[in-house]
Design a protein around this nucleic acid. Structure first.
Lengths: 149, 149
DNA sequence: TTTCATGTAACTTAGTTAGTTACGAATTGC
DNA sequence: GCAATTCGTAACTAACTAAGTTACATGAAA
């Protein structure tokens, strides 16, 4: 898994899970989809389990499944469950008492608060179902073109 | 300088420069404001010079000054000149040919394009002058309270 | 009770970025 | 011209972060 690709990697995994709703997929299988290690997968999506987005079971036939219907799972939730920050910059004071720094941080924090609210709002309108639909569309297109050729 | 604080550190520096429009500040002085090294400062704001946001001069009495009026310098420009990305996640393909990944990337890139446009638009409305005004306001407040006590 | 799978801690490796050193180039003042 | 000053930049080091890996305990099913 590459850096900063936790969100897209996780979505990749979740779409595969949505595409196989009748059976549990193992960390090993999930890891295969994104070319990484089973432990990395378990670690990455552990937060999703706590958020109820996925469920996991141990032992024979165990593995991972979606915790609810794909159209009830938004990207906002997934991103939050991963502990991802939507904005990259930090604004922690480094010169306590400096009024210039305080002004900078105040303005920047205002912006960030508003921006995060806005982005989360948008992400809450995109669901896993939208992704699987997009995948399905691409899949059918390939099928059609295969027939054509 | 801490990680991911390049934007706020740079703004801190720029407000100090705006507050001393009549003279050039050396990298050494600027570094002092954010508790870092002069070379780090030069490296960090080199992009701002190319963008015309600041100018630099060498030799005796040399240093850094704003390239134009503070109300003509927006945070959007500064952020761009620093080479900062507004959104943290990457969407580079890791499994070429995988339709699931293609769907994920397509949706995520759509979102990012729109989000970046939106954030840049908002940042373009905040100028360095806004920051200096906020600083000035805080400064005056302290002054008043000092008199009161 | 054997096998399979997750849960998690601990460690290693790779990559990024700040920090540092060093020195050349340009500019000013004497 | 020459010394002092300051930026520009390359090269290196150190610190930090996150992925990758190993190991093993826990739990569930055949």
């Amino acid at each position: 898994m590459k850096r900063n690709s936790r969100l897209s990697s996780t979505l990749h995994i979740l779409v595969h899970m949505a595409d196989a709703p009748d059976r549990a997929l193992t960390s090993e299988q999930l890891a295969g989809f994104i070319h990484t290690n089973p432990v990395v997968v378990r670690r990455t999506i552990a937060g999703l389990r706590e958020a109820g987005i996925v469920t996991s079971s141990r032992g024979h036939g165990g593995g991972w499944q979606l915790g609810r219907a794909p159209d009830e799972i938004s990207l906002a939730e997934i991103s939050a469950a991963l502990g991802e920050t939507l904005l990259p910059f930090s604004t922690e004071p480094e010169s306590p008492g400096c009024l210039v720094e305080q002004a900078v941080i105040a303005v920047l924090d205002d912006f960030r608060l508003e921006a995060e609210r806005l982005l989360a709002e948008r992400l809450s309108h995109i669901t896993l179902a939208d992704l699987t639909a997009d995948f399905r569309r691409r899949y059918d297109l390939i099928g059609v073109s295969s027939h054509a050729v």
